[in-house]
Computed example of a mutant assay.
Amino acid sequence: MKIEKNEVVYTEHKYSLKENIRRNKFAYALIAPAIVAMLIVQLIPMAQGLYFSVLKLNQFTLKKFLSAPFAGFENFNRVLFDPSSNMRSGFLEALRNTGIYAVICSFMVLAIGLAAAMAVNREFKFRGLARTLLLTPWVVPSYVVGMLWGFMWQQDTGIINRILVDWLHILPEKPFWLTGSNVLWAIIIPTIWRNVPLVMIMLLAGLQNISEDYYEAAEIDGASGFQKFRHITLPLLKPIIGVQLLFAMINYIYSYNIVSMMFGHGAGYPGKWGDLLMTNIQRNSFGTWNFGAGAAATIVVMICVLAVVGLWYRVFRDSLVVDE
């Protein structure tokens, strides 16, 4: 405590980590199981994957496991620069496809989810039933989504082409959806369909926490519906939108189930226009027993994800600050 001009100013004492643990033993005891679980489930496998990425780990050295020959950065070179490597073949194309897929799915799911949340937030008859039906896609397992949409995208027998060509006459002929340049859209659309409900529920919870007083005051000032949405709804939903975008980008970068089941029920290849990072790594590492190169590829993907998280933090940093 120090005194300046008859005013008492209290300075906060900063405790060391050891002092904090001693002062808050019970609190640290409560979070200790979670810390141990994170070490076992996340940090230790991450460190092990990093170690595998510098080993020559294949079908000949797998029985040695942790004592496999040291390869240094050879695995990373095979993934990124060696054109003769099976891991390099298609990896950059999968990286491109995954970037397009993640960006489109993230923003489309957010936009559709926000529109659906605002729609079901209004009072209307059978609102509870509408909310329940809109949640249906989220209940369906992603493996089942991949299989169902795989049948729906079939050129001759699929329901999608029948609707677009035979019923609505939007297209002149039935296109191929599971081969060629249309493959990525065949993956994006079911992904959006399945993930919209979760985002809708999260944004609906945020909308219900916004006081009606803000909208009433804006209406008195003559604000239009779009102005109320822009200056009230969006700013107050920004923390939720930020968290949803973060989870969505990470989820879509690591997406695997829908693609793997849509093409060959877990063993197919969607081609250069639809291959994603996870399907590419799984096929080229487990299919050819190149586990060291596969681990190196996952490290590259992890670095890309960390870059995305860093960019996200710069954009939404102000939304994470809690006013005291």
Rank of each mutant, 00 (worst) to 15 (best):
P137Q: 09
R88V: 01
I160W: 14
N161Y: 06
V165F: 00
I163M: 08
D156W: 12
V183D: 07
S89E: 15
Y101M: 04
V145N: 08
W185F: 15
L178I: 02
V140K: 12
A116H: 07
R162D: 15
L133D: 08
V183E: 11
F124S: 02
P172S: 11
A111N: 04
V109L: 03
L178H: 10
C105I: 00
R131M: 06
V139N: 08
F91T: 00
F126L: 15
M118I: 00
N182P: 06
I100Y: 14
D166F: 04
A115F: 13
M108N: 09
F91E: 05
A130M: 14
N182L: 08
P137R: 07
R131T: 00
A94F: 11
L92F: 14
Y143D: 06
V103R: 08
L164A: 10
G158M: 00
F126W: 13
S181W: 12
G99R: 02
N161W: 04
F124D: 05
T136Q: 03
K125R: 15
L134D: 09
K174P: 03
I159R: 02
V140N: 09
N161H: 05
F176W: 04
E173M: 06
N97S: 02
Q155M: 14
K125Y: 11
R127V: 06
V103E: 08
K125S: 13
A117G: 09
Y143A: 13
F151H: 13
H169N: 12
E173L: 02
G128D: 13
L114M: 15
I112S: 05
V140R: 08
W153E: 07
A102M: 14
E93W: 11
L148I: 11
P175L: 03
G128A: 10
P137M: 10
S106K: 13
A94S: 14
S89T: 04
K174V: 01
L110Q: 11
L148W: 07
A117V: 01
L178P: 03
I159L: 12
V120K: 06
M118W: 09
P175R: 03
A119P: 07
V165C: 00
V139L: 14
R96Y: 12
W153K: 06
H169D: 12
R131D: 07
Q154G: 07
T136Y: 13
Q154K: 14
T179P: 08
V140D: 09
A130I: 03
F151Y: 15
W153V: 00
W177I: 00
N182A: 14
A102D: 05
V145C: 08
P137V: 00
L171H: 03
G150F: 09
P141K: 10
W167A: 06
A94V: 00
A116V: 06
G150S: 05
D156E: 15
D156R: 13
R162I: 02
Q155V: 02
E173S: 13
V183W: 10
G113E: 04
R96E: 11
L184Y: 12
A115W: 13
T157A: 10
V139Y: 10
N182Y: 14
W149V: 01
I100N: 13
M108K: 03
W167F: 14
R131S: 04
P175N: 07
W167I: 00
K174C: 02
A116T: 09
L110M: 15
W149K: 08
G99Y: 11
V145I: 15
G90C: 01
L110N: 10
E123F: 05
A111V: 01
D166M: 02
L178C: 08
I100V: 12
V139H: 09
E123S: 14
F176K: 00
I100L: 15
S142G: 07
V103K: 07
M118S: 10
